[in-house]
Design a protein around this nucleic acid. Structure first.
Length: 573
RNA sequence: GCCUCCGUAGCUCAGCGGAUAGAGCGCCGGCCUCCGGAGCCGGAAGCGCAGGUUCGAGUCCUGCCGGGGGCGCCA
């Protein structure tokens, strides 16, 4: 039980229960002590008792022996200071554990995690970065806590544009056999098709008919469509590999995958009495949504032309994730602009009876990436940058930054580090900003070895590892005892013990930036410790081994923490 | 027009209803003949505005101002 906040809460609870059963001690990190319990004032108010007096009563009643000391402060806070011996022992325990003392969740969930979800026929661009990176980090965190994650890469592979893409392929007489097929530059191909669609009415008409044919199972259309999908997936995989994203081809569950379930969706909605025909389309009007004119806003399940749109596939996918996959958590890592859409989908799904009490749905929304002008990021040519180009530039810039540091890496190591640092920089910059907020993309800042950046954390880790290399060992002596006497040792030990607390908060709020902030704090605490407390030149052997345990636990925390963000921490750099 | 997100230091960002609002970069002043300068220690500088709820509000509610996004057959 090394989590200090949890331990304190547990030990305080009986004293709080004795006054008001079930009252929350409200244990929080404090800058006046290690932690503070804020819960006294609220119950003092409800009882009409003087808060300081009540605080003292609870402080006297609480059994904190071997854990912490307590003192009443201010209007009725309980300031809690952990015993040095507790800190020392807890760090020893944590440092020996591969999970660094973090327990798995008591309740395991099967989670459908919808993320990345690009559109087939186009390349990934910067707009896909956040959802992909945040989703992947959440997948790692969920798995770390013991949950079963079923990633759902909900490809846009069934919509209107496919008519024109297929038609364009036919015009070119493309060989659709797996070996022969390649459109090379996907974006250029898409643009060609698009401009033909806009310029040539007969082509546009053919395209529209081709979509209908596709959705009705036309063999030729399907063959070309499959070739297009496969080509796109090949491209996506390349980007995912470079990004070290764990999405696999088997995680693909595009819109097309639900085609044969759409009729059942309609039937369900019909049965629930939700379906209304409006302007020839089949709609559901969930309560509380209105359009510009103040009229009820529909979810269009089936379009006037008989085709199904994304609302229908989203509903089918949701239903599938509960019914067939047996998921009890449905998370959607999708950009903030779609929040209303998901609110409506969740509302309709609940009304249709597809979402049992035990199932939780959540839209994990995120903001967009802005250029230095605070407008959506564009290339010099005014286009949305391709993700592959952006990542390649990150690797190139990281390589240059490494050269400037003049460490003389050999060719292979330089390439490995440039990729690890470059990709890590981009991911960290993305993950370290609060999800819902738009953030400004700045190469110089994210690639700096100073400040709150990916390279800084990676470097901190590598430096610690170098201590052990210098020593000719891989870690501290097994069973070495920790003592915390210097304030910097104490501060570092306390920070290390907050790892579990940090991870829990990160997952509770789906907020990787919390973990980023925590890891940066660890690196800072270590830096201060390292400045003030000699390790290799410690005054005596016992102190040295104790400090080595702190070093080791720090390196492990950084490494594991970064890995949960999907960022590599090299042994040396 | 309605809905929604955002508005915190010069800049980029933290801040789970609690005490004196933090960090990074930049700026100013010290320290370190140092285990790879990722320096270390200190300083100046800020909650868009107005009400309300609360023992306590950057945080919750209402209104306003400013910015982004969404609002029927695209995804």
């Amino acid at each position: 039980m090394p989590d200090p906040a949890g331990a304190l809460r547990e030990r305080l609870q009986p004293a709080f229960d004795a006054v008001v059963p079930g009252s929350d001690p409200v244990v929080r990190p404090s800058d006046r002590a290690d932690y503070q319990a804020n819960g006294v004032m609220a119950i003092a108010k409800s009882l009409g008792r003087p808060p300081r007096e009540l605080a003292q009563q609870i402080a006297d009643a609480a059994d904190l022996a071997g854990l912490a000391s307590v003192e009443v402060a201010g209007p009725g806070f309980l300031n809690l200071t952990l015993d040095d011996a507790y800190l020392a022992t807890a760090v020893e325990v944590v440092g020996r554990d591969v999970r660094l003392g973090v327990a798995e969740a008591p309740e395991r969930h099967r989670v459908a995690l919808d993320y990345s979800s690009p559109g087939v026929g186009k390349e990934l661009h910067v707009g896909h970065l956040r959802g992909t990176v945040i989703g992947d980090s959440l997948a790692r965190l969920l798995r770390f806590f013991g949950h079963e994650v079923i990633p759902r890469n909900h490809l846009g592979d069934w919509g209107t544009p496919f008519g024109m893409l297929i038609e364009h392929l036919r015009d070119l007489g493309v060989d659709a056999s797996p070996e022969g097929f390649s459109v090379g530059d996907l974006d250029a191909f898409y643009k060609e098709a698009r401009s033909k669609f806009d310029a040539d009415e007969s082509f546009a008409e053919r395209s529209r008919q081709r979509v209908v044919a596709l959705q009705h199972g036309d063999e030729e259309a399907l063959t070309l469509w499959r070739a297009l999908v496969n080509e796109s997936i090949r491209h996506f995989d390349g980007v995912y590999r470079l990004l070290d994203i764990r999405l696999q081809p088997e995680d693909v569950a595009g819109e097309s995958a639900y085609n044969d379930q759409l009729d059942a969706v309609v039937a369900d909605l019909e049965r629930a009495g939700l379906l209304v025909e409006s302007d020839g389309a089949l709609c559901v009007f969930p309560e509380g949504f209105t359009n510009r004119e103040g009229d009820p806003l529909p979810i269009i399940v089936r379009k006037r032309d008989g085709g199904y749109g994304y609302a229908a596939t989203d509903l089918a996918a949701l239903r599938d994730r509960v019914d067939r996959l047996g998921c009890d958590r449905l998370y959607y890592v999708v950009g903030a602009p779609q929040s209303q859409h998901f609110e409506m989908v969740f509302r309709v799904a609940a009304a249709a009876g597809w979402v049992p009490e035990s199932v939780v749905t959540a839209h994990i929304a995120f903001g967009s990436i802005l250029g230095e002008d605070h407008k959506p990021l564009k290339t010099r040519e005014g286009e949305t940058p391709r993700l592959m180009d952006l990542l390649q530039e990150a690797v190139d810039r990281a390589g240059t930054a490494l050269d400037e540091r003049g460490a003389g890496y050999d060719e292979g190591e330089r390439a490995y580090l440039a990729e690890a640092i470059g990709i890590g920089s981009v991911k960290y910059a993305d993950l370290s900003t609060e999800r819902l907020r738009d953030y400004v993309f700045d190469w110089d800042r994210m690639l700096s070895f100073e400040g709150d950046t990916g390279p800084y954390l990676a470097y901190a880790h590598a430096r610690i590892r170098s201590i052990f290399r210098r020593l000719g060992r891989d870690g501290p002596q097994p069973g070495a005892a920790v003592t915390v006497t210097e304030p910097q040792e104490r501060a570092l030990a306390l920070a290390l013990l907050r790892f579990e607390e940090s991870l829990a908060g990160t997952l509770e709020h789906f907020a990787p930036h919390r973990l980023c902030g925590y890891l940066f704090g660890i690196a800072q605490a270590f830096s201060s410790f390292y400045e003030h407390c000699s390790v290799l030149r410690a005054p005596d052997e016992v102190t040295r081994e104790s400090r080595l345990v702190l070093c080791d636990a720090t390196a492990k925390t950084l490494s594991l923490g970064l890995s949960l963000l999907g960022i590599e921490a090299p042994e040396r750099m």
